[in-house]
Computed example of a mutant assay.
Amino acid sequence: MTIAYACILFMGLLPYVAVGIAKKGFEGYDNAMPRQWLAKQTGFRARANAAQANLFESLPFFFAAVIIASVAHAPQDRIDLLAVGFVLARIVYLICYIANWPTTRSIVWLFGIICVVSLFFQI
């Protein structure tokens, strides 16, 4: 397994970390209606849930970029570097979202998108 493919696996699991943070302590958690419970949350729980949604939304673009670059035989070291850059950006993004640092979060988001777009230019 390449580093980039390991990044795909990691990114596939990262949204679940965000939702775990949103459900931290399960105060009043309703497992029968988890989405409705999450929709009513405020503060860090609401931000973690929003981060979860955004993390899921970013997956197809990232997965496609890594796979297409790999199939096109782009240099593996560059694919790995850009994939790791994206993963690190998304981890910092999650931290910024939960901490309520919107400007920093947007800058980190931009860095992540640049990594993904750059993967396409490796082809």
Rank of each mutant, 00 (worst) to 15 (best):
T103M: 11
G12V: 05
L13S: 11
F26I: 03
L14K: 03
V84I: 15
L119P: 00
A4P: 06
Q36N: 10
P60R: 06
I107Q: 08
N49P: 00
Q122R: 09
G25R: 05
L82M: 11
R78P: 00
Q41F: 05
G28S: 09
A32N: 14
R90S: 09
R105E: 08
Q41T: 11
E27K: 14
E57N: 09
I8S: 08
T103N: 07
L82D: 00
A83L: 08
A50E: 14
L38S: 12
S106C: 01
L14H: 04
A51G: 13
C96D: 13
P75E: 13
L13F: 15
Y97W: 10
K24S: 12
I79T: 06
N100S: 13
I8T: 05
A22N: 07
W37E: 11
A99G: 07
T103V: 15
L55R: 00
V87I: 09
T42I: 08
V92D: 01
I95C: 10
Y16P: 01
F111N: 05
L13P: 07
N31K: 14
V84K: 04
D30H: 07
E27C: 01
A39N: 15
I91V: 15
A65C: 05
I79Y: 01
T103H: 09
W101E: 12
T2R: 05
I68P: 00
G112V: 03
S118A: 15
Y16L: 14
V19N: 06
L110P: 03
V108T: 14
K23M: 13
F61V: 02
A65N: 04
A64E: 03
Q122P: 05
L81M: 14
M11W: 08
F63M: 10
V92P: 00
V92S: 10
I123K: 08
I98T: 13
L38C: 11
A32H: 11
I68R: 01
L14P: 07
K40M: 12
N100R: 10
I8G: 06
S70T: 15
F10E: 02
A83E: 04
A32D: 13
A6F: 10
Y93D: 03
N100A: 15
D30M: 04
R45M: 11
C115V: 06
C115A: 13
A4W: 03
R47P: 02
A18E: 00
I95P: 02
I98C: 12
K23D: 04
I98F: 10
L9C: 09
F26H: 10
K40C: 08
I79S: 02
R45L: 03
G12R: 02
F63T: 07
T103W: 11
Y5A: 13
K23C: 11
L38W: 00
G20T: 07
Q76R: 07
A74Y: 07
S106D: 09
G20P: 10
V71M: 12
F63N: 07
